[in-house]
Design a binder for these strands. Structure first.
Lengths: 247, 247
DNA sequence: AAGTGGTCTAGACCACCCG
DNA sequence: GGGTGGTCTAGACCACTTT
């Protein structure tokens, strides 16, 4: 493969399709192609990297399997915009009174600039002096609180959020991140635990003290894999269900 | 592709690599290749189905992605034996008193031949007159009960288990299924829910009534996708943790 | 009609495993 | 050294979308 095609230093010991994949990820992280737009065609990529079509396809296969790209026959290969907003539906089954599935609305209760604790600092890979924006949200269905969320963001990347009025935050934060702060969430890791409701949980969620509560801890990252958001979500376990398919 | 190679009737509209995948699944389900043994080499498969190496590899890629086969360079392509015994480790973190991870032992408390209820009958795709073998197990760590399990099996496939003494059941059931009943578990679906401990749960697991309990409901299937086991597992939610990686 | 990804070929050479 | 899967080529033709 033509090494001139790379700005980085690819590892020659790796197969060409993996080197090519790595370089494509780098170009994606640099914003060379925006979400929902087509990347270069397979023929162009083959010329650029000086590899054959089979190798191009194998490199793209990896990124499609990772959920980074999608292919559409006759149209092109597109940068996939992850839809995390349905993420909680994998855990909680929210229905309105008439039984139809609904998306909870959101209300930001508090916003503050804080020094993160050690766990958040290390997870978000912050330096000792870096501060974070801390949001407290409640999510509601038909006015009834169902989830409570705590969110921490690195201040330097999300400065634009400090000027927004609390009432102007939208239900979905990730489109806001992208529009106001040019931060795109490309992947996330979530850890589930079960706790027993504290008095605060009980009052907010309208459940009994000590009844089961699901805690979802999420770390979201950009295309380069750099963590950009830490979020905890709590909800009554009575609405919880999750399905796993094993090979 | 040479249609003589197929016993079934492949759909000509499908790509050859998908037809080939379907036929390989059929041959696996028929037991043509046993778990942990090598299937025919890629060259042989290419000759047999009259396709080129690239197409053979693509068909096998699908089965590897499904977890049905594994490839080992220089050795061959092998039928994968799923290791479900570590499955619960994805949900529960079991440690002994010295902090090392351990596998719980098992003790069968009860075995009976019963008419299944409607939910189990339909899930296991049984006819109205078919009976099931019902096992009640408890799983222990260092003698302390940590999980309670209820298992239902179609009687006709698992007749051999009715003659086994309760003390002769082993910690792991799936090797037993395979050895005594020639039933191989190839895949499973698990659904997680959170409940509050009943008095029975509390007494068995040594926890407080009403404290959170994880309920895992598993349906296990053979290579052909036919369900062969229904299982519920209950354990204290305090030992529960689960991680999900998104795109 | 032109351009895109989807399928498929008929090889080649390499890396690894085992006797 | 012989056999296996892993990588890669340089095309061909097909199915689909857009102009």
């Amino acid at each position: 493969m033509d090494m001139q095609a790379f700005s980085g230093k690819p590892d020659d010991r790796l197969p060409r399709y993996q080197q090519m994949r790595d370089d494509l990820v780098r170009r994606l992280a640099q914003g060379e192609w925006a979400p929902d737009t087509a990347i270069a065609t397979e023929a162009e990529l083959g010329q650029f990297y000086n590899v054959s079509t089979g190798t191009v396809r194998k490199a793209i296969d990896l990124l499609v399997a990772d959920g980074v790209l999608t292919r559409t026959q006759g149209k092109g290969t597109f940068v996939r915009r992850p839809r995390f907003d349905s993420s909680l539906f994998r855990f909680f089954r929210f229905k309105s009174v008439d039984g139809k599935p609904v998306r909870p609305t959101a209300k930001v209760l508090r916003r503050e600039i804080v020094k993160p604790n050690e766990a958040i600092r290390s997870t978000l890979q912050l330096k000792g002096s870096d501060k974070t924006i801390h949001l407290s949200r409640v999510r509601l269905i038909e006015g009834r609180p169902v989830l409570s969320e705590e969110i921490w963001l690195p201040r330097n990347r999300f400065e634009a959020l400090t000027g927004l009025r609390l009432g102007d935050f939208e239900d979905l934060l990730y489109p806001l991140y992208e529009r106001l702060c040019r931060q795109i969430v490309a992947s996330a890791t979530e850890i589930l635990n079960v706790e027993q409701a504290t008095e605060d949980d009980a009052a907010l969620l309208g459940i009994d003290v000590g009844s089961p509560v699901i805690l979802v801890q999420r770390v979201a990252a950009d295309f380069a894999g750099t963590p950009i958001e830490w979020r905890t979500t709590r909800g009554a376990a009575s609405g919880f269900q999750y399905q796993v398919d094993i090979r």
